[in-house]
Simulated assay, not measured.
Amino acid sequence: MTPDYSIGPKILGEINVWDNADLSKQEHVSPDGRISLHLLGNIPAIEKTVGQSKLKAS
């Protein structure tokens, strides 16, 4: 996917967690537009582009 691709429901996305392959996974966007991440909960993703959806957590 390109950085300007719009995310929508049921899209399969790849979540990469830096320096922790055990937390990296593929996940579908739920019908309500969220991606479920184990440590962060449900993250809104719908109507964002791939570039906008990149998270940085510290």
Score class of each variant (00 low, 15 high):
residue 1 M to L: 06
residue 1 M to H: 09
residue 1 M to W: 07
residue 1 M to Y: 10
residue 2 T to L: 02
residue 3 P to Q: 07
residue 3 P to A: 08
residue 3 P to E: 07
residue 4 D to L: 06
residue 4 D to R: 03
residue 4 D to M: 07
residue 4 D to F: 05
residue 4 D to K: 04
residue 5 Y to Q: 04
residue 5 Y to M: 03
residue 6 S to M: 02
residue 6 S to C: 03
residue 7 I to A: 01
residue 7 I to T: 04
residue 7 I to G: 02
residue 7 I to E: 00
residue 8 G to Y: 04
residue 9 P to Y: 02
residue 9 P to R: 05
residue 9 P to D: 09
residue 10 K to T: 13
residue 10 K to F: 04
residue 10 K to Y: 12
residue 10 K to W: 03
residue 10 K to V: 12
residue 11 I to L: 13
residue 11 I to V: 15
residue 11 I to D: 15
residue 12 L to W: 06
residue 12 L to G: 13
residue 12 L to P: 06
residue 13 G to L: 14
residue 13 G to H: 01
residue 13 G to W: 03
residue 14 E to V: 15
residue 15 I to W: 00
residue 16 N to S: 11
residue 16 N to E: 09
residue 17 V to E: 00
residue 17 V to F: 05
residue 18 W to A: 15
residue 18 W to F: 10
residue 19 D to R: 02
residue 19 D to P: 01
residue 20 N to I: 08
residue 21 A to M: 10
residue 21 A to D: 10
residue 21 A to Q: 08
residue 21 A to R: 01
residue 22 D to A: 15
residue 23 L to P: 01
residue 23 L to I: 06
residue 24 S to M: 04
residue 25 K to M: 12
residue 26 Q to H: 14
residue 26 Q to A: 12
residue 26 Q to R: 14
residue 26 Q to T: 15
residue 27 E to W: 00
residue 28 H to V: 14
residue 28 H to F: 10
residue 28 H to I: 14
residue 29 V to C: 11
residue 30 S to W: 09
residue 30 S to C: 12
residue 31 P to S: 15
residue 31 P to N: 15
residue 31 P to Q: 13
residue 32 D to W: 05
residue 32 D to C: 09
residue 32 D to M: 08
residue 32 D to T: 14
residue 32 D to G: 12
residue 32 D to N: 13
residue 32 D to L: 10
residue 33 G to R: 05
residue 34 R to K: 13
residue 34 R to V: 13
residue 34 R to C: 12
residue 34 R to D: 10
residue 35 I to K: 00
residue 37 L to R: 08
residue 37 L to Q: 07
residue 39 L to V: 07
residue 39 L to Q: 05
residue 39 L to G: 09
residue 40 L to E: 08
residue 40 L to D: 02
residue 40 L to A: 10
residue 41 G to T: 11
residue 41 G to M: 07
residue 42 N to G: 08
residue 42 N to E: 13
residue 42 N to T: 12
residue 43 I to H: 07
residue 43 I to K: 07
residue 43 I to N: 09
residue 44 P to S: 09
residue 44 P to R: 08
residue 45 A to E: 00
residue 45 A to I: 00
residue 45 A to R: 01
residue 46 I to A: 13
residue 46 I to C: 09
residue 47 E to T: 13
residue 47 E to K: 04
residue 47 E to W: 02
residue 49 T to K: 00
residue 49 T to I: 06
residue 50 V to F: 06
residue 51 G to H: 06
residue 51 G to M: 05
residue 52 Q to H: 06
residue 52 Q to S: 04
residue 52 Q to K: 05
residue 53 S to Y: 12
residue 54 K to F: 11
residue 54 K to P: 03
residue 55 L to G: 09
residue 55 L to Y: 01
residue 55 L to K: 02
residue 56 K to G: 11
residue 56 K to D: 13
residue 56 K to V: 14
residue 56 K to E: 14
residue 56 K to F: 09
residue 58 S to Y: 04
residue 58 S to P: 11
